[in-house]
Design a protein around this nucleic acid. Sequence first.
DNA 1: ATTTTATATTGCAATATTACGATCTATATA
DNA 2: TATATAGATCGTAATATTGCAATATAAAAT
Lengths: 109, 109
Amino acid sequence: MGLTKSEIFTKEQNELSTLLKALAHPARIAILQRILISNTCICGDLVEELGLAQATISQHLKELKNAGIIQGTIEGVSICYCINPTTWRLLEKQLGAFLGSYKGETTCC
Amino acid sequence: MGLTKSEIFTKEQNELSTLLKALAHPARIAILQRILISNTCICGDLVEELGLAQATISQHLKELKNAGIIQGTIEGVSICYCINPTTWRLLEKQLGAFLGSYKGETTCC
DNA sequence: ATTTTATATTGCAATATTACGATCTATATA
DNA sequence: TATATAGATCGTAATATTGCAATATAAAAT
């Protein structure tokens, strides 16, 4: 099928998996790291730095934008993408709760 | 294509995205939450609880196992799956570093 | 030895993702 | 106004993912 049965899961489970999916690609991690380091971002730079075609990078940026992880504003000719603080904090919170709920090793395995 | 160009990214970027990909499905999040809560897991329970076919759940468990996130030992007739502490800690560390490198809002967007 | 129980594997159909060339759009500059 | 520049969108090919029925496997109980 290729179609996730979202309706049988909770809102939280679907939201978290959507955010994780947006992060789950090396190019998108690289893009985010680049934004995090420079605290700003112009798509053109990424094309030179990452070694992917301009259309491909634009598509990855779109996915990050759709997930709400980044936001962009027009800056003259180019577009400045940066982290969306609200989503980033949400991600930190949700993931922190999820990962933090592991209480160490069990006896069974 | 559908084929990620892994060779142009760093080992860290590829590793983190692989782990995130394994987590990026509501069913796999639900499975992990179930393991985290009960500190043990038997596949059969999940089939009843999640509303997915047994084959589908077995497949999700396999993906989590392949990513090293869970491990399973044979327990009589059934198999006991639980968190792999090493990978979980790695994930916490890598993700913590990644998410934590965001230093608050910028002036540009 | 046969049957039951629990889980894995196989095969397949539907859909999603990744990547890129080509093209379109909008702004800035000559 | 024409042209250059930055980025988005479209179309398409290749591959991956999701889900399940059917079947296989392996241990336990009868």
